[in-house]
């Protein structure tokens, strides 16, 4: 465990360093000054409370969604459907917050979370069920379900719930909004960072305990490592698939809290801006460890917010390229590092 952790750390650091080098060369080829760009990013992100706040704000849904995916990935269930799953749940969270807005806030909030969790969870049970019954790979079904769910949410939103001529629901009562960090710490003045970030951190710790310290977590990981052996050991694989898909997808719904309760006060089509996909990379980078996901989410948030801040110097899309390079170098460097240590019999 300890050596494995160290090897992972080495591998992750090396892949980040190599990414940095590749991007450096890439910028040189584009005839930009890498130092200038890096320093702009650095000052924009870290030099002001606003920058830090915005970065943490952007990290929040990534942490939440990454944790949900980690649950699935540990069971070797390659859930590509988080984008759809989290939109279904978030939509329902907004609707419940509107319809039951008169309830006392704590009750309302918990009710919203439960409803969102269950609805997202059910969208996760669909691919799980198809996998169990028909043996269809969850990769295919979850990708397809993204389109279906987003289309359905779009239909219900536009035809029944949206404010006229917009793509969003009505706004929930101001009194039901979560507290912003800037309300307590003037340091974060102007940023949207809110209590959802704390919820995300708590969730990461809870996911860590769930995956690594509970009996079900052990069974889930055992099934992920060796399905046949798990069957013979007496683990109910179907139950593991259903439960991890339900839990994993359910968790992703909470990503909507940041936007709905913490920022805009309504559900809006496209609010998630591909968090469900970015979170795949976030979870992979952290080796599906929820505590690691906190850090990889921060890294991706820096790239995201940093990308905005250097928009004038380089196209914003360059940060997508950087994210891609990170993923590729994780995969490549990991192989190299692992085989290096294997030869020495350390891994």
């Amino acid at each position: 465990m300890n050596t494995k952790f160290r090897i992972n750390l080495i591998s992750i650091s090396l892949s980040l360093i190599s990414t940095l080098l590749i991007v450096f060369v890439f910028l040189l080829i584009l005839n930009k000054n890498p130092f200038e760009i890096f320093s702009v990013i650095f000052t924009e992100v870290f030099a002001s409370g606003y920058g830090i706040g915005q970065t943490l704000f952007k990290a929040t849904p990534l942490i939440i969604c990454g944790c949900g995916l980690a649950v699935c990935f540990h069971a070797s269930l390659f859930n590509i459907g988080a984008e759809g799953q989290l939109n279904a749940g978030s939509f329902v969270i907004a609707l419940v917050a509107l319809k039951a807005g008169s309830l006392p806030f704590p009750i309302l909030f918990i009710l919203c979370i439960v409803c969102g969790f269950v609805v997202s969870g059910i969208t996760g049970i669909i691919p799980a069920y198809i996998k169990i019954k028909k043996g269809v790979s969850e990769v295919i079904t979850t990708i397809m379900l993204n389109f279906i769910i987003l289309a359905l949410v779009n239909y219900f939103l536009v035809d029944f719930f949206a404010v006229k001529a917009t793509m969003h629901t009505e706004k929930i009562a101001d009194s039901n909004m979560l507290m912003k960090f800037s309300d307590i710490f003037p340091f974060f003045e102007g940023s949207s960072l809110n209590m959802s970030f704390v919820i995300a951190l708590l969730l990461a710790f809870a996911s860590y305990i769930f995956i690594y310290k509970t009996k079900f977590g052990y069974k889930l990981r055992a099934a992920g490592f060796n399905e046949t052996a798990s069957r013979y050991i007496g683990i109910n694989i179907n139950k593991v698939i259903l439960l991890s898909f339900f839990t994993g997808a359910g968790i992703t719904s909470l990503a909507g809290i940041n936007y709905i309760f913490g920022y805009k006060g309504f559900y809006e089509m496209g609010f998630s801006s591909n968090v469900g996909f970015t979170a795949i990379a976030v979870a992979l980078l952290a080796r599906n460890n929820p505590l690691g996901i906190i850090f990889s989410s921060l890294l991706f948030a820096v790239l995201d917010y940093g990308g905005l801040s250097v928009n004038q110097l380089v196209p914003k899309e360059i940060m997508l390229v950087v994210q891609g390079i990170i993923i590729l170098s994780i995969l490549a460097v990991d192989r190299i590092v692992k085989s290096y240590f294997e030869k020495r019999g350390i891994a």
Binding site: Y218, F225, N226, A229, Y232
Partner: peptide, 29 residues
């Protein structure tokens, strides 16, 4: 089982972790 690697164990787990999978225990480990 006849084939320990395929059917008997989780290679990535320790001795204790392999045993706890089947042993009665509390939910937190």
């Amino acid at each position: 089982p006849d084939d320990r690697l395929k059917k008997g164990m989780i290679s990535e787990f320790t001795i204790g972790e392999n045993i706890i999978l089947k042993k009665k225990s509390s939910n937190f480990i």
